[in-house]
């Protein structure tokens, strides 16, 4: 049976979503996206540079191969996020949006109050909203109740690579939320991704963890394998943790 990730009206085989920012070059980015096996890639929405109007990410990303997920990164108010989401929908002809409303420049933590407000407006307008949120289970529930097609709690601050800082909150979110829970932000290396998946998260969205690695293409493959491994381990059922040893070899039949 194929283990599909269902988000709104779409379904995906890959549970790893990858950003397109901060790569050393477009060439490395394309190779990293390929190695990651991602089907969903996030993009930002920005003004066209009037001095270089020919520049476009469309020139290097195969839009027939990937589902583009426009984000509202850099928006500090609900209104700006709503405007950016509308522009993203028009530009990329998609109703998917990774909704971000940033509350603070230093931590890039979300402004959850404004996030919820924006989510409600966009859901009404027919968007399939995937909100970047904190790891607060109550807010996750409110976002689900507002009609979001996924909730995307951070594992740690964006770009920090600190890994899964609060696994217990993620566990509570996973217990209470029915829509997919995608860890968004903070994953630094493959073991972080595996831990998130072992906890039961439905997927992971990352950018810096891959783009900022010394070898982004190798890290993309590592993340792909870690997401798959973590998912398998989750359903394989790990052994209970014990304080003392439990011999693997028979304790009978030893030589005198």
């Amino acid at each position: 049976m194929t283990d599909l990730l269902r988000i709104g009206t779409r379904q995906f085989k890959s549970r790893l979503m990858v950003g397109t920012g901060k790569y050393p070059s477009d060439e490395v980015m394309i190779k990293a996206l390929e190695a990651s096996g991602a089907e969903v890639v996030t993009v930002a929405i920005r003004r066209v540079n009037l001095d270089k109007t020919g520049e476009s990410l469309l020139n290097c990303i195969d839009i027939n191969k990937y589902t583009l997920l426009p984000n509202t990164a850099g928006c500090y108010t609900a209104d700006d996020a709503i405007r950016t989401a509308r522009l993203g929908r028009e530009a990329l002809e998609t109703n998917l949006v990774k909704l971000e409303v940033i509350g603070d420049e230093k931590t890039l933590f979300p402004d959850n109050e404004a996030l919820l407000q924006a989510a409600k407006v966009l859901v009404k307008e027919g968007f399939q909203v995937m909100p970047y949120t904190g790891d607060d289970p109550i807010m996750a529930r409110k976002l689900e109740d507002a009609g979001c097609v996924a909730v995307m709690p951070l594992a740690a601050p964006i770009g920090s690579g600190l890994g899964i800082r609060n696994p217990h909150n993620l566990m509570i979110i996973l217990e209470t939320i029915k829509v997919p829970v995608i860890v968004d932000a903070g994953v630094g290396t493959a073991s972080d991704a595996a831990v998130a998946m072992e906890l039961g998260c439905d997927g992971i969205l990352m950018n810096t963890g891959i783009a900022g690695a010394k070898d982004p293409v190798k890290m993309a493959l590592a993340m792909k394998l870690a997401v798959e491994s973590g998912r398998l381990a989750r359903f394989a059922g790990r052994i209970p943790k014990k304080l003392y040893a439990n011999a693997s070899s028979p304790i009978t039949g030893l030589i005198d």
Binding site: T20, K22, T42, I45, R46, L92, I158, A211
Partner: peptide, 10 residues
């Protein structure tokens, strides 16, 4: 007038 397009982001 604001004219936008997609660019790299996470």
């Amino acid at each position: 007038v604001e004219i936008i397009r997609m660019t790299g982001g996470g």
